[in-house]
Simulated scan of single mutants.
Amino acid sequence: MLFSHLFSNRKINPIVPGNQTQFTEFILLRFSEKPEQQGPLFGLFLGIYLVTVVGNLLIMLAIGSDSHLHTPMYFFLSNLSFVDLCVISTTVPNMLMSILTQNKTISYANCLVQMYFFMVFVGLDNFLLTAMAYDRFVAICHPLRYTAIMNPRLCGLLVLLSWIISFLNALLHSLMVTRLSFCKDHEIPHFFCDFDEVLKLSCSDTLINYIMLYIIAGLLGILPFIGILFSYIWICSSILKVPSTEGKYKAFSTCGSHISVVSLFYGTELGVYLSSSVTHRSWNSTVASAMYVVITPMLNPFIYTLRNKDIKNVLRKLISRITSSQ
C-alpha cells in the first residue's frame, strides 16, 4: 500500500542493544480471536475469493475469445483482471488455511514472499490504471491518431515496464527488510504480512527503509495518480467542446468504468491511510485493509461488466455456448 504510507507519521525504532532471540515466524492476528466467529469469517472470505476468481477469469476469457475485444483498452483490462486475481490470491488463501488449521503463525520466509508479491501486484494495479487513463486520453482527445499512437508495440511496452518496475520496487524493499532484526513483538495486527506493519516490529534502525519508502512512494505512487488526474482534466475539457449532448454522453460512457475503478482503488487506499493514522492496531484499520485488498478486486469485474455492453454480449455468447454444449 505504497500510496498511503507517504503521508503517515512513522516512528523510527532505535537499535536495541543486547542479545536478540532467534526469530523464525510472525503471528497474524487476523480479524477476530473468538472461535464462534471463525466459521462465518471463513465462509465470507471463501465466497468473496471464489466470486473474484470466477469474475476475473470470465473477463479474461471473454476478451481472449472475441477478436472484437482485441483493442488497447481491453488489453489493459485483461491484464488488470489478472493482477486483481493475483492480489487476492496472495493474501486470502493463506488466511483461509490459517482459519481451518487454527494456526495464526507464518514463517519469516513466507511472510517475506507474501509481502514481496503483494507489493508487486499492488504496484501493477497502479500502473495499469495509469495506462488505461492514458488510453482514454488518446481515444477522446486525439481520436484520429488513436490507432497510430496506441499500437500493439506501445501497449506491450507499457505493460512490460509496469511489470519490471513493480518487480524491482518490491525486490528493493524486501531485500532491505532482510537486514533488519526482530526481537520480542512478532504480532502483526493484520490478516497478511503488510510491509509497513513488518517495519514497525523491527528493533533495528529503519530510517533508511522509510527514506526509500517515501522517495519511491512519491515517484511510483503520486506521479501516476497525478498523471491520471491530468488525463481526465484534458478528457473533460475535450468532452465539453462536443456540441451534441448525445456525443458528450457517449464520450463520458467510455470512461465511466475506469473512473469507477480508479475511485475505488484510491478511495480504499485513502481509507487505509485514515484508519491507520488514528490507531495502528484498531479493528477499523484491518477492515479498511480488507476493503482495499479483498473487496476492490471482487468489485472490478462487476463494474466493467455492468457498464460495458461489449463484454456483456460476449459473456452471454460464452454462457450460451457452455449451456448448449451440455
Rank of each mutant, 00 (worst) to 15 (best):
Leu2Ile: 09
Phe3Asp: 07
Phe3Met: 05
Phe3Arg: 04
Ser4Asn: 11
Ile12Arg: 09
Ile15Gly: 11
Pro17Gly: 15
Gly18Trp: 00
Gly18Pro: 03
Gln20Tyr: 13
Thr21His: 08
Glu25Lys: 07
Glu33Ala: 15
Glu33Ile: 11
Lys34Ala: 14
Lys34Gly: 14
Gln38Trp: 06
Pro40Arg: 06
Leu41Pro: 07
Gly43Arg: 09
Leu46Cys: 14
Gly47Ile: 00
Gly47Phe: 01
Ile48Cys: 14
Tyr49Gly: 04
Thr52Phe: 04
Leu57Lys: 13
Leu58Ala: 13
Ile59Arg: 05
Met60Trp: 10
Met60Phe: 03
Thr71Gly: 15
Thr71Trp: 14
Tyr74Ala: 00
Phe76Met: 01
Leu77Val: 01
Leu77Ile: 03
Leu80Asp: 03
Leu80Thr: 02
Ser81Tyr: 01
Phe82Trp: 09
Val87Asp: 14
Thr91Ile: 02
Asn94Tyr: 08
Met95Thr: 01
Leu96Asp: 08
Met97Pro: 07
Met97Leu: 08
Met97Trp: 11
Gln102Leu: 08
Asn103Val: 01
Thr105Asp: 12
Ala109Phe: 11
Asn110Val: 01
Val113Lys: 11
Val113Glu: 12
Phe117Asn: 09
Phe127Ser: 07
Leu128Cys: 04
Leu129Met: 12
Tyr134Gln: 00
Phe137Asp: 05
Val138Lys: 07
Cys141Asn: 15
His142Leu: 04
Arg145Gln: 07
Ile149Thr: 08
Ile149Arg: 04
Pro152Ala: 04
Gly156Tyr: 12
Leu157Met: 10
Leu158Arg: 07
Leu160Trp: 12
Ile164Gly: 14
Ser166Lys: 02
Ala170His: 09
Leu171Phe: 14
Ser174Ile: 00
Met176Ile: 00
Thr178Glu: 05
Ser181Lys: 13
Glu187Asn: 05
His190Cys: 06
Phe191Pro: 08
Phe192Val: 03
Asp194Ser: 06
Asp196Val: 00
Asp196Met: 08
Asp196Arg: 03
Lys200Asn: 13
Leu207Pro: 05
Asn209Thr: 03
Ile216Glu: 10
Ile216Cys: 11
Ala217Val: 03
Gly218Gln: 04
Leu219Ala: 13
Leu223His: 07
Ile226Tyr: 15
Gly227Phe: 07
Gly227Asn: 13
Ile228Asn: 02
Ser231Tyr: 00
Ile235Trp: 00
Ser237Thr: 01
Ile239Asp: 13
Val242Asn: 10
Pro243Tyr: 06
Lys248Asp: 04
Lys248Thr: 04
Tyr249Phe: 06
Ala251Cys: 06
Ser253Arg: 06
Thr254Asp: 10
Ser257Thr: 05
Ser257Glu: 12
Val261Arg: 06
Val262His: 00
Ser263Gln: 05
Gly267Gln: 07
Gly267Pro: 06
Thr268Trp: 02
Thr268Asp: 03
Tyr273Trp: 09
Leu274Ile: 01
Ser276Asn: 13
Val278Ala: 05
Thr279Asp: 12
Arg281Gly: 04
Ala290Ser: 11
Met291Tyr: 03
Val293His: 08
Val293Asn: 12
Pro297His: 03
Leu306Lys: 13
Leu306Gln: 10
Asn308Tyr: 07
Asp310Pro: 15
Asp310Thr: 01
Ile311Asn: 06
Lys312Asp: 09
Lys312His: 10
Arg316His: 12
Leu318Lys: 10
Arg321Ile: 02
Thr323Ala: 12
